[in-house]
Design a binder for these strands. Structure first.
Lengths: 103, 103
DNA sequence: TGTTCATATGAAACATTATTCATATAATAA
DNA sequence: TTATTATATGAATAATGTTTCATATGAACA
């Protein structure tokens, strides 16, 4: 599946696991295991989610030995997050972005 | 429910119906019936979706006689859409935003 | 007040997406 | 070429979100 629609793109931000991955990668590239750790999740789950993020070009990968290093497409992602952060602040809405629970 | 998380915000763009509402409102404010027409949907469905868009301050409303006029929070929405449009173009991905089918 | 037009809402049915579990593949080094 | 570590994948199950349908509410006006 090589094409996708707008809503597909946004689905990556709409899902907690994917969003957490994105946020974790804001601090720089990481391997799958590292992401799994930081997100306190499980490898298979992370891999499934990474795939979709990749399909939408929200992330990039490169091989490094046995590992795969995922990095953020910051050109697109950073400005979007910035706008949304401002939006949330401006509208005085409680932001639960730090919700780190397992789901 | 007055607070929401990042992913909730994005959920409004991740759903086809909601996204279509947003896109239709890019051309200016509309009443519920007008939105229902343009989106070729059904009133109750539109109302349900409008509610969530409103909760996230993606839309605003005002009363006008019997009608309720919904308008876009363009300050937030327009720049986000702009970034995503560029992203899709840049990554040579087929954009199916014009998918106007009934679902 | 009763009627009409416009919109909202609750709950059940339905649809879609995510996670889990078991297992496969891929790269590297011994 | 086998063992090991790292990651990916398919399919069933679980979780979540969306629509539908029936009905309620609300504004305006006769």
């Amino acid at each position: 599946m090589k094409h996708y629609s707008y809503n597909n793109f946004f689905m990556n931000f709409a899902n907690k696991t994917k969003l957490r991955i994105i946020l974790v990668l804001e601090n720089g590239p990481l391997s799958v295991n590292e992401i799994t750790d930081r997100v306190k999740s499980e490898q298979s789950r992370i891999s499934h989610n990474l795939r979709k993020l990749l399909q939408c070009h929200i992330l990039n990968v490169k091989q490094k030995g046995k590992q795969r290093i995922y990095s953020l497409n910051s050109e697109t992602v950073v400005p979007i997050l910035k706008i949304v952060k401002r939006h949330i602040k401006k509208n005085c809405l409680v932001c639960k972005i730090k919700n780190k629970s397992g789901d």
